[in-house]
Design a protein around this nucleic acid. Sequence first.
DNA 1: ACCTGAACACCGTTCAAGT
DNA 2: ACCTGAACACCGTTCAAGT
Lengths: 211, 211
Amino acid sequence: MPLERIVAAAVQIVDEEGAEALSMRTLAQRLGSGTATLYRHFENRAALVAHVVDRMFGGIGIGIGDDELAAMGWRDACRTTVQAMFDAVSRHRNVAPLLVEGIPVGPNAMAVRERCIAALLADGFPPRVAAHTYATLSRFVLGFAIQIRGHHGADRSDGDGEASTAFRAADPSRYPATAAVSDWLPVPLEDEFRFGLELLLDGLGRLREDG
Amino acid sequence: MPLERIVAAAVQIVDEEGAEALSMRTLAQRLGSGTATLYRHFENRAALVAHVVDRMFGGIGIGIGDDELAAMGWRDACRTTVQAMFDAVSRHRNVAPLLVEGIPVGPNAMAVRERCIAALLADGFPPRVAAHTYATLSRFVLGFAIQIRGHHGADRSDGDGEASTAFRAADPSRYPATAAVSDWLPVPLEDEFRFGLELLLDGLGRLREDG
DNA sequence: ACCTGAACACCGTTCAAGT
DNA sequence: ACCTGAACACCGTTCAAGT
């Protein structure tokens, strides 16, 4: 009863039926076993979720070597890493809600962190700033990731559906400024993400010049 | 059976016992009623949660007039607004996990958005950039907010407890860069927040100069 | 030693029955 | 018309009993 097989089945459930469909019962059933058996491998549901999350982080960075990443400079290295994290979550939209549990500390998440921080240090960032930078960038990804909803594709009424209608239904006399920009609200998540990422990178660049 | 009383009781439960303690049953019990009665005021639990979340947004911006905020310029207006949002979540740490449901669209959340976007427009930001800016800033707050855990005070082993021990236990030969900055990981949330906020504001300032 | 059926104490939601 | 007890179909977790 390899642990790997349990996690794979769990990921399969999340990808196919959503995060809320992953219960100890549904998982045990898919494995042809009982719920109690699962507790021999995971202390609780949170531990299982942590493994599922880290498996998603395993899909990041394939095809880019550590040296290659370090050679491209802090700016491109950060951009590539953060964008890859966002893409990974986008590919596994249903896993996103599971990220609320806490800071990912599985081996794959650790590897991603390591590569990004290494690139920053290699470019001369002081350790304290490098730590702050990665923390901020990953928190930024998280803020976007957890609100990625719905199934893949061009479904406009995804999770922002309620928000979208709320913005359009808002009283223009009460919310004139919001109404003035409502054509651009809610911002498509991918665009919004890249916009914010470039802001952060510009801010980092300026911080580096001044320091 | 005023709706206001139900929401107040719900907030009380969340503040006192945590977000996970808020169930239709516990809420009905505190009100001396049955669960079915609640469904006459809220379509489902998500609607109840939305009201609880918006009540937290109601605590933002007391003491600062709209004109006063608009007069301080986009940079200070954004900083004040975003910091106030973060502070509000910090004051109601237990409410934070409820933010994952979606973009807040209650009246209080709308008011905060309106004031911030108005300040941006008043300072000459194009509508599209203003929309992107507020979206990015609020997403940024969200990323931090949902990982604020534990009870108020100086409990160091809060939610980052597992992460903290994981960083220190990490093999330095496998994760040399992470180990090199581990003294600064995990970054205290308040510091990390202000660091990232200034990066975003610097990036925005540069964007404005160039455009 | 390893596994598991059945139970415990919970959920959100609904509906027939009461006032 | 308004309210609600009781039920339905689920949860995570545990433990005594089986092999």
